[in-house]
Amino acid sequence: MKPPPFQYAAPTSVAEAVELLGAHADDDARALAGGQSLVPLMNFRLAQPAYLIDLRRIEELTRIRTEGDTLVIGAMVRQSHAEHAPEIAVGAPLLAEALGYVAHPPIRNSGTVGGSIAHADPAAELPAVVLALDAELVLAGLGGTRTVAAADFFTGPFSTAIGSGEILTEVRIPRRAGGHAFVEFARTHGNFALVGVAAVVELDGGTVARASIALSGVAPVPVRATAAEEALTGTVPDDASIRAAVDAAVAGLSPAGDVHGGRETRTDIARSYLRRGIELALSRAGDRR
């Protein structure tokens, strides 16, 4: 299980990277972030890019900063660094919590925030998180940069709005009030989840003012549990209203089965974990009821 040959460059600026990407578009050039998804695929020879552009030396992509109410995370920030970064603990605790579920520490020490989002594995944690948080993804190309809303970013399993010749440079996360929760069900610790739930719930005097809930693992792309969000909003949450919200969300699901769980089992687990996620977010949002 050895990777196929490729050419390699490690530019030091986004401009240079984008230029290289454009110049080698015909060679199936790909950006290399932490490599924790791409290198295994190459070892299996399921991915065979002829040119890899390693983004590790582009310092501007490794910073975390706050712009007003927006947290800006460079795409090459390593997952383990983000997991423990004070800015993220404050600005996006949902993301910090979710990062603890991304594989294992040795993977997170190499894997990057941007890499995981750009890889767009439907079972992965971070895509669901950015979707729940209404984050924006900044893409740089030869023509400049553009910003894509998370809701428009994931276009299919392992496919995104990143265009040919573009790289993901930044994740912009608006600060959100309320209680957060990330919960997921994986068969073994650190393995891919069957279902993940990312939730933020804001209470106003005991009433749900706003709920954002995203699910991973139940569709070709991470999905918002819109029905649950709507069912919860405006209610004073109790067991019955939570159950109603969960049922509303689950009714709309038709997850594909695989060797770890068929459609029915995944739906069962989604039902269970939606409830757990909503309950945890509510308990953190303040007093329930």
Binding site: R187, H260, T265, D268
Partner: peptide
């Protein structure tokens, strides 16, 4: 005893 098998039996 996988989640699939156990859930099927419970269902």
């Amino acid at each position: 005893i996988t989640p699939d098998r156990l859930r099927a039996a419970i269902r």
